[in-house]
Design a protein around this nucleic acid. Structure first.
Length: 650
RNA sequence: GUCUCCGUAGCUCAAUUGGAUAGAGCGUCGGCCUCCGGAGCCGAAGGUUGCAGGUUCGAAUCCUGCCGGGGAUACCA
């Protein structure tokens, strides 16, 4: 039962007599922020007063007189300008809790209007190492899938892999020129990865060499234009000048750091004599790689054969990460899946008068956008916009979804605005397209998270480190001293991955956040560990008391509410449904972490205040054991919707 | 230049999308184990929500203008 939804529906009956569309007013019934205002509050009398031209408090009174909530609430009060404060009856609370005792779904009903969602998330480029930038999409997308599925919807999770890009040109080139057959036979993934990195390094080296003179020139120009700027004496002009100077200096610093990085790269390469020799022999590698890629796309038999040979290895490689993350997909249709449909997409757009030629490219011009969406380049090649459109067409034909969600970082918002606009123009008007955008993972310096040397941080290394730090904590915990090595490893793995995921999910997805191992594993505050800890404490109670919880659940023992801490906990337990619907309403998993943190917190208060095994009476003990059990199951279920596991001991 | 997102306690972040006295954690200070896991609990201090106006019963949230920061911006994904 969703308490909030129930109250809204009760109020709607009354509101419907006062106004045509009661829904927005019913939505103004909310949980109270302060317990002194009751458990819930109805804020609809104030706007209604405006609309009906009557004093809000009078309207509130009339609503109070008419609304039928006496079975679940008592002591309805009107406060301030016209707030209606609602307090749930303890008897009703207890009755609801008693229905949860044996309810595996913890009071969450499956939707009676199930919808089909296609969710596009993670979508890394195969054959390249996954990095920190892939965390958010992967973890948020997975949490949304799990939550929507649990609520009874049909969800197709699709990993739209980058499996058709230049990186295969690189690997093919590498394979043709640098392969070590013995190494490839033994560990194909490692060898392919070595080849990718080698070719990447060669290309970067040449690019750096090419760019450096130009870069140094712009640094010179930048310095000159800074020196040119002299104060004029006019205060207003000088203020502008100062601002311009600051901008120029920042630009200069940026250019200089670029130059430093490139120099470092070049120096490093030049110090490597073997590498230099290779570089000398492959001076045209940049264009050669492009050629290999173009041949692949054109259907060259040799390159297709190699691509088909490499792809399974690349998939196995990223699958290893997904296994560690405990994340999977219903389908994985990468870019390559769509490549033979792209020409038809462009044809169709042209026939529909949406696309036209401009500067040799085929473009869709859209109102409200300066730049068009280009669907075919001057050289005839297609772009990811084209692939995205083909993907929409395919998904629509295949699953006929009500919604397509794209969990992709915020920088691509304009791309998606255009994509959705084109899709609607193309005829897909009944699909809810959503760009589930998210912010950047930052380092301690408040800049995008990089290693000290400026490289992107690998996802695998991130996992290793989180697990390593978690292991240290488990190892040092005296209460888990009797756990053997293998179990400790398992616990560390669960806690480490959980910390990483939760840290990401607990932030509002639209904001950037600063990555910190200490914070995510600091086992206080809003962390996975804190929630897992509450769960483990409950299991510890059961173990210590030799409690057969299964029997207890099925006994007709009532749950009682005695102390305030019990009521406080009970109320939160009944709000699970509210937490979940908040996640789905705006696709924000942090609503669920907030809920779970609050639940764990209320449990901890209850735990301090209300002895369980040492309760005064047996009925009280049993009641509290049941509260513990529902709490534990809610924590476990809630965390599992975030892709996070629990352990009995940690 | 244009478009777009953001600015909340010393720090890292919330705030049920317009609700009452803006909440957590870290850090600081002070309490709580002869008692179920102290990885915990309770409390204190800490705020002109970037600034200035406006909208209204009510604004961190909406509008306007400044200040400051990120991002995007015609053939990469």
């Amino acid at each position: 039962m969703n308490v909030l939804a129930e109250l809204r529906s009760r109020f709607s009956l009354v509101l419907a007599d006062l106004i045509d569309d009661p829904a927005p007013l019913a939505a103004m019934i909310l949980p109270s922020q302060d317990p002194k205002f009751g458990d819930y509050q109805a804020n609809c009398a104030m706007p209604l007063g405006k609309q009906l031209g009557q004093p809000p408090r009078e309207i509130a009174q009339s609503i109070v007189n008419q609304v039928n909530v006496s079975d679940l609430c008592h002591d309805l009060q009107i406060a301030g300008p016209g707030f209606i404060n609602l307090r749930l009856r303890d008897e009703w609370l207890v009755n609801q809790l008693n229905t949860l005792k044996t309810d595996e779904r913890l009071g969450i009903q499956e939707s009676n209007q199930p919808l089909t969602y296609v969710i596009d998330y993670s979508s890394p480029n195969v054959a390249k190492p996954m990095h920190v930038g892939h965390i958010r999409s992967t973890v948020i997308g997975d949490a949304l899938c799990r939550t929507l599925k649990f609520l009874g919807h049909r969800v197709i999770s699709d990993n739209h892999l980058g499996d058709w890009g230049t990186q295969f040109g690189m690997i093919i080139y590498g394979y043709k020129h640098f392969r070590d057959d013995a190494a490839y036979d033994r560990l194909p993934i490692e060898e392919l990865s070595r080849l990718y990195k080698l070719v990447r390094r060669l290309i970067d080296f040449f690019e750096a060499q090419d760019r450096l003179p130009e870069l140094r020139q712009s640094i010179g120009r930048q310095r000159a234009s800074i020196e040119e700027k002299q104060p004029s004496g006019d205060a207003k002009v000088d203020k502008k000048l100062k601002k311009a100077l600051r901008g120029l200096r920042e630009k200069l610093a940026d250019l200089e750091s670029q130059e430093k990085n490139l120099c470092g790269l070049v120096d490093q390469c030049e110090a490597d004599t073997a590498f230099c020799e290779t570089a000398r022999q492959h001076a045209d590698i940049g264009t050669a790689v492009q050629l290999e890629t173009a041949k692949l796309h054109a259907g060259d038999a040799e390159n297709i054969r190699l691509w088909e040979q490499f792809l399974p290895h690349c998939r196995t490689d990223i699958q290893r990460i997904y296994d560690r993350l405990d994340i999977g997909f219903d389908v994985e249709y990468g870019e390559s899946f769509y490549h033979d449909r792209l020409a038809d997409v462009v044809d169709s757009l042209e026939k529909n008068g949406l696309a036209r030629e401009s500067d040799g490219a085929i473009c869709v011009f859209l109102d409200g956008f300066e730049a068009p969406m280009i669907v075919r380049k001057r050289d005839g090649a297609f772009l990811y916009a084209t692939t995205d459109l083909a993907t929409i067409a395919y998904r629509s034909e295949t699953w006929n979804p009500a919604a397509m969600l794209y969990v992709v970082d915020h920088r691509q918002s304009e791309h998606f605005d255009k994509l959705f606009a084109v899709a609607r123009g193309w005829g897909y008007r009944n699909i809810e397209f959503q760009h589930i955008s998210f912010g950047t993972v930052l380092g301690e310096d408040n800049k995008p998270y990089k290693t000290r040397s400026g490289d992107t941080v690998g996802l695998e290394g991130l996992l290793d480190e989180a697990e390593r730090k978690a292991f240290e904590v488990v190892r040092d915990n005296e209460l888990a001293i009797d756990l053997d090595e293998k179990r400790r490893r398992h616990v560390a793995q669960v806690i480490g991955v959980a910390a990483l995921k939760y840290a990401d999910l607990s932030h509002n997805r639209t904001s950037d956040y600063v990555f910190s191992y200490d914070k995510m594993l600091s086992l206080r505050g809003n962390t996975a560990t804190y929630c897992q800890y509450a769960y483990a404490r409950i299991q510890s109670i059961f173990a210590r008391g030799n409690v057969d919880i299964e029997t207890l659940r099925n006994d007709p023992i009532p749950i009682m509410i005695d102390r305030p801490a019990e009521r406080f906990l009970a109320l939160q337990l009944l709000r699970f449904a509210e937490g979940l619907s908040a996640v789905v309403d705006d696709y924000r998993p942090n609503q669920l972490t907030n809920y779970l943190f609050e639940l764990a917190n209320r449990f901890s208060t209850f735990f301090e205040d209300c002895p369980v095994l040492k309760a005064d009476t047996q009925p009280q003990q049993q009641s509290r054991l049941l509260l513990c059990d529902i709490t534990a199951r809610t924590l476990k279920q809630g965390l599992s919707l975030l892709g996070i596991q629990v352990v009995d001991r940690m």
